[in-house]
């Protein structure tokens, strides 16, 4: 059985667990616990190690989705999770500008780990206060080739779209590498 993985990362409370939960065929294996810090009491519990979702492709192939913990004190998990990944999705809560700087930091860190393609999912686009994806592109200083996708993590179609766009980018990169070699 071949297993491939994608990493879903982003700041605290960006919607990573919901994103994985929307497409995973198993209940997300989530290592969550009650939040103790006052500053982080936006939701009742948070991911302290990682979320884990699965999509079976066939008898011989399975895709794992790993969500990174959003809190800084679990940064040490990031490079472990990023090893061997096919690509990654950076989740950004479009309604929380105070987290954009952190999103940029996470994005740059993951970029430094591997030259795998990634997409940015501008989550919570159904909310009134959401910043437009193209404004986020400027703020996060994304390269033109990096896709920024409007996303609602609780909506399966929206999550599928983000994953597909990431896969198309991976495909493009593979084709480009093959083209360079031949």
């Amino acid at each position: 059985m071949q297993a491939v993985k994608m990493v879903i990362t982003g700041p605290f409370s960006a919607g990573k667990t919901q994103f994985i939960g929307s497409v995973s065929e198993i209940d997300v294996v989530s290592t969550e616990r009650k939040i103790s810090s006052m500053a982080e009491q936006v939701k009742e519990s948070t991911t302290v190690a990682m979320d884990f979702g699965r999509i079976t492709v066939g008898d011989d192939l399975v895709l794992y989705l790993f969500g990174t913990p959003g809190q800084r004190r679990f940064d040490f998990m990031w490079d472990i999770l990023s090893q061997g990944m096919l690509g990654f999705v950076v989740m950004v809560d479009s309604t929380k500008p105070e987290t954009f700087r952190e999103a940029k930091r996470i994005l740059e860190t993951f970029e430094s780990y591997a030259s795998t393609p990634y997409v940015v999912a501008a989550n919570k686009q159904d909310m009134e206060d959401a910043w437009e994806p193209e404004d986020l592109r400027i703020i996060l200083r994304l390269k033109p080739e990096v896709k920024i996708l409007p996303c609602v993590a609780t909506d399966k179609e929206s999550v599928k779209n983000a994953l597909l766009e990431l896969l198309y980018s991976i495909l493009d990169q593979l084709d480009q590498e093959n083209g360079d070699k031949s």
């Binding site: 079976t56 192939l61 061997g84 591997a114």
Partner: peptide, 17 residues
Amino acid sequence: PSPAAKRSVVVRLIDRI
């Protein structure tokens, strides 16, 4: 990390998703 995914794997993932 060494590239683990081949083109066919990615195409299969696309079809599945």
